[in-house]
Simulated scan of single mutants.
Amino acid sequence: MQDPYSRELEVAADAVRRAADRYVRSDGGPSEEKENAVGSYDLVTYSDRQAQEDIIRTISAEFPGDLFIAEEGEENSLTDARTWVIDPIDGTLNYERGIPMFGTQLVLMVGKEPVMSVIYLPVPEEMFTATVADGVRLNGMPVKPCGGHDLKKCIVSTGDFSRKKQEWRDIHYALIGAMKDEVARIRMFGAACVDFAYLASGRTDIHIRFVNKLWDFMPGLFMARVSGAYVDEELLSEKRFLLLTRTAEEASQYRDIVLSQIDM
Rank of each mutant, 00 (worst) to 15 (best):
E234R: 13
D170L: 08
V24M: 07
E33L: 14
H207G: 03
E71L: 00
F210I: 04
S201I: 11
L175G: 01
S237A: 10
R203Y: 14
A13F: 00
S260I: 00
E126N: 08
E72V: 01
Q261G: 05
A248D: 11
A251D: 09
A133W: 09
S237R: 12
S117R: 01
E249D: 12
R163I: 14
T247V: 04
T92I: 00
A248F: 15
D216Q: 08
A191E: 00
V136Q: 01
T83M: 08
K180W: 11
I89W: 10
Y198I: 01
M264C: 02
G135W: 06
L214S: 10
F128H: 11
A12W: 01
C154E: 00
L242C: 02
N94D: 04
F222G: 05
D48I: 02
S237D: 07
V16S: 04
R209Q: 10
S157Y: 14
L108V: 02
L78D: 10
E234L: 15
M223Y: 12
R209W: 12
P142F: 05
E74R: 13
F102R: 01
I155N: 04
Q261D: 08
K213M: 09
D90F: 00
F241I: 03
T131N: 12
F161P: 11
V85R: 05
D21Y: 15
L259Y: 00
D90K: 00
G202S: 02
C154A: 14
D216K: 05
Y173G: 07
T158E: 13
M218T: 12
D54L: 06
S237C: 11
D170M: 06
Y5R: 12
D66C: 06
P145C: 11
D21T: 13
H149M: 10
A130D: 11
M264A: 00
D54Q: 13
I56H: 03
A61N: 13
V231F: 05
A51G: 07
L43K: 01
D160N: 14
K34Q: 06
R203W: 12
D134E: 13
P145L: 14
E74A: 10
G190M: 12
V231L: 14
L214I: 10
I186C: 10
D170P: 05
A81E: 15
I208T: 09
F68C: 04
F161L: 11
I86A: 05
D3Q: 09
N36Y: 02
T131H: 10
I86F: 04
R246E: 08
L235R: 05
R225A: 04
F222A: 04
E74V: 04
L93V: 15
V211T: 09
F222L: 06
R187C: 10
A200C: 10
G98N: 11
I208R: 03
D87E: 12
T245D: 05
A13D: 02
E126A: 07
S260E: 07
R22V: 08
H207Y: 15
D160E: 13
